[in-house]
Design a protein around this nucleic acid. Sequence first.
RNA 1: GGGUGGAUGACAGAGCGGUCAAUUGUACCAGACUGUAAAUCUGGCGCCUUCGGGCUACGGGGGUUCGAAUCCCUCUCCACCCA
Length: 305
Amino acid sequence: MKKIIVILGPTSSGKSDIAIKLAKKIGGEIISADSRQIYRGMDIGTGKVLGNLVSKRKLSFFLSQGIPHYMIDIVSPRTEYNVAKFKKQSEKIIEDILQRGKLPIICGGTGFWIQSIVDNVNFPEVKPDWKLRKKLENYPAATLFAMLKKLDPARAKNIDSKNKVRLIRAIEVCKAIGKVPKNSYALRVTRYEALQIGLKFSKEKLHKNIEKRVIARFKQGMIKEVAKLHQQGLSWKKIQSFGLAYFWIPLYLQNKLSKEELIKKVIHAEKNYAKRQMTWFKRDKRIKWLKNYRDIEKNVMIFMQ
RNA sequence: GGGUGGAUGACAGAGCGGUCAAUUGUACCAGACUGUAAAUCUGGCGCCUUCGGGCUACGGGGGUUCGAAUCCCUCUCCACCCA
């Protein structure tokens, strides 16, 4: 089976550096699996550009050395993007990389997106029905759950009955194609043989890294970046929907928050985010958790043989 | 010096005689996750437990009461007002 490498980990774990080093060593090309780095104009806040990670100059340096990065800056922040699109698009890229005899390295922190490729998750082809969604949003979760139960008892069985976002999507799929296709959540036929490597840190170390990085980002002009996005016509609400720093900075720019509070909030949000990421990763027992680059390289070499 | 209002779990803040180990929010811990995933959602959160319950708790001390976080007295501290 075709082989791919995955480098994953929580925010601030230094994934990018490792991935680039590895790519250079073994002739790899990098596919970013990051749900926010896909957007153009969101550079500092998403960690695309940063001191101890990959500065813009550094990034182009590596690019010029023939290590391409895919799935970065691919759409405008106005675009509705999602896992299904990510999966389709990056699988094409993976095939292309493999065809050229190179090694695809998926690098990122968006667990769901990584899983979509590793487990070949099959998403139903049902586009968002905004009118329906708007209507359903008014109902309480219990009502939505009852609706779904009638439409598709099988899906109702394993859905989170209190999560409106999920319930609405499930109902949407049912309305469009009868019910949620079974294989969309039960059948997994893998397409690639993936070596998933996780970068592990103690919580203390990770928190320190996060603090350092957030402060560095502010120094680099993260606030200006957000102001610019707004100038370009993105509403505060839209910007806030991107989460973390993008959630809090608009409040500061509207004078609803002091700078000191802002920095605190962003650091806190990043730490919580890292925790959520780890919760996701922890349950995948196939992930090999490693600490230093040498071990990673060794494991990759063995895997490649 | 006089008066008034306060003191509640990590913090904020409800409760104002029993149904209170104490609403709620935040923080913290754990978890879920199949087309929004940096999103969305769930559970736990005094101590002990053979999971029946037991113990210690709403600033300190004392009292009233079958019963007090809730009422009374007093002390300490805080806030505001009058001197």
